[in-house]
């Protein structure tokens, strides 16, 4: 467009657009290559349920659990369940204090969970804090026990002190 190039005066249209046809061919090849690549590379389960890999759902679900869940614990530790039922910790699940125990449930004989440190565990819930609901039992542990471990007086599975003195039938709930 800028400079005049001496060119042979060929009137054939094909000759005049040959370069464009060649370009179109290159583009067509690129598009075909893309379509082929797409068919080959996109995972088979893509679009099974929506715009995602259907297999991903099962992959997420396949993760092994770490917390066994209280039903599994209660299957064996019936004595603790009976204890717990009598006190205010009845609704507490085992792994709240004992931590994730799926590995123990899997192999109870060789994997023994450590005994939780009541000094730490109890305070997490019962250390006084103005943001806790008023009705929730809470103490300033320094004043309350003077550094003694909580299980010196309270039995964690059935924490109320009087409860433990009474026979099992005297439970409130």
């Amino acid at each position: 467009m800028r400079r005049a190039i001496p060119a042979p005066k060929v009137k054939l249209l094909f000759k005049d657009i040959e370069h464009l046809l060649r370009l179109a061919a290159v583009m067509l090849i690129a598009v075909v290559a893309f379509v082929v690549l797409r068919a080959a590379v996109v995972p088979k389960s893509f679009g099974q349920y929506g715009h995602y890999r259907g297999d991903a759902i099962a992959e997420v679900a396949a993760r092994p659990v770490a917390h066994a869940g209280h039903e599994v614990c209660e299957g064996c530790h019936t004595d603790v369940v009976d204890q717990k039922k009598l006190g205010r910790h009845a609704g507490l699940h085992c792994e709240v204090c004992h931590g994730p125990q799926a590995r123990h449930a899997d192999d109870p004989a060789s994997i023994k969970p450590p005994l939780p440190d009541t000094g730490v565990i109890c305070a997490r819930c019962h250390e006084a804090n103005s943001a806790k609901p008023r009705s929730f039992p809470q103490v300033a542990s320094a004043d309350h026990s003077g550094g003694l471990a909580c299980n010196t007086c309270h039995q964690p599975h059935r924490p109320k002190i009087q409860d433990q003195a009474k026979p099992a039938t005297g439970a409130k709930r």
């Binding site: 679900a61 917390h67 869940g69 209280h70 609704g91 792994e95 709240v96």
Partner: peptide, 17 residues
């Protein structure tokens, strides 16, 4: 998701005292 699809509750709900 690996728990709720197997009939368990979530870990957070399991341990909420």
């Amino acid at each position: 998701y690996h728990r709720i699809t197997k009939g368990l509750t979530t870990a957070c709900a399991e341990v909420c005292p």
